[in-house]
């Protein structure tokens, strides 16, 4: 056995994976060859040093970023975590006096229904406005009246701004109604709802920033209106939940709590 035949087997000798015959041949060569003995010693040292490398702990800051990613993705996938229907119903059972305290008067129900009708109308108008197919850049540019690129951008931006206003109006109304009735909610449920609204708000802020830098981006636009729609849906469900809790309807409460966030 010469050096060039010997060297590929040295790593296996270091790892102890050579057959007995191959090992015997290799050791015979090593007795005569100082160069290969030197190489073997170096390979062993490298392996031992590698095994001795310290383990490094992941910085906690990475988890914060991973969590933010997860929450944004989960919100986008409509997979926000809400208390299970059982939890929501159980928390109501544990506080019967609270439910009774909020049994609404006839006048309050009528006022609430009227307010809700206005809000739902506003929200629906916003949803209708946004869910109708928006003109794509190519569609707009096929119209001679909008042939200039600058005009295309201007037109899209104007339409987006109008739609955004509709959403904001609907959301403002829903937020007010939800805030007014929030005391009827179990604190735990209210906290979860608030947290999820925070996640959606963050998505809205990020989408707006993306849209600002790329006004004609379909992806940025869809992302913004998806987040806005999600917020409208969540607020609407919140109001429905408040109404059911005020009525003391445990089955209705559990049903709504179970559907919250599934959008």
């Amino acid at each position: 056995m010469n050096c060039s035949e010997c060297q590929p087997a040295l790593s296996e000798l270091v790892d102890g994976t050579l057959s007995r015959d191959a090992r015997a041949r290799l050791e015979s060569h090593l007795e005569e060859c100082a160069d290969c003995r030197g190489l073997l010693a170096d390979l062993r040292r490298i392996r031992e040093s590698a095994r001795a490398l310290p383990k490094i702990a992941a910085p906690e800051a990475v988890w914060q970023k991973v969590r933010a990613d997860f929450e944004a993705e989960a919100a986008r996938d409509k997979r926000l975590t809400f208390p299970s229907p059982v939890t929501a119903a159980a928390s109501m059972e544990a506080r019967p006096s609270r439910v009774l305290r909020f049994v609404p008067t006839r006048r309050r129900i009528l006022a609430g229904l009227a307010a809700a009708a206005v809000i739902v109308f506003a929200a629906s108008a916003g949803v209708y406005f946004m869910t109708r197919p928006a003109p794509t850049a190519s569609q707009v540019s096929s119209n001679p009246a909008h042939a200039e690129p600058a005009q295309v951008v201007e037109s899209v931006e104007a339409e987006l701004a109008l739609a955004d206003q509709h959403y904001e109006k609907a959301i403002a109304g829903l937020e007010k109604a939800a805030k007014d009735g929030q005391s009827a909610l179990d604190p735990q449920v209210a906290a979860v709802l608030q947290k999820n609204i925070g996640v959606i708000d963050q998505a809205i802020v990020e989408s707006r920033a993306a849209l600002k830098s790329q006004p004609t981006s379909e992806v940025a636009r869809s992302s913004l209106f998806e987040a806005l729609q999600k917020k409208v849906g969540l607020l609407r469900d919140t109001i429905a939940l408040i109404n059911e809790m005020r009525k003391g309807d445990q089955a209705g409460t559990a049903k709504i709590a179970g559907s919250l966030g599934k959008g």
Binding site: L53, A58, P59, V66, E73
Partner: peptide, 27 residues
């Protein structure tokens, strides 16, 4: 799993890029 994956990223990509890689792994 973060600890083991972080060490892999650290050894494979180096200390300066291990954080971003670990974040990307979980995303």
């Amino acid at each position: 799993h973060a600890h083991r994956l972080y060490n892999l990223a650290y050894r494979m990509a180096g200390s300066t890029e291990a954080d971003d890689l670990l974040q990307d792994v979980f995303l």
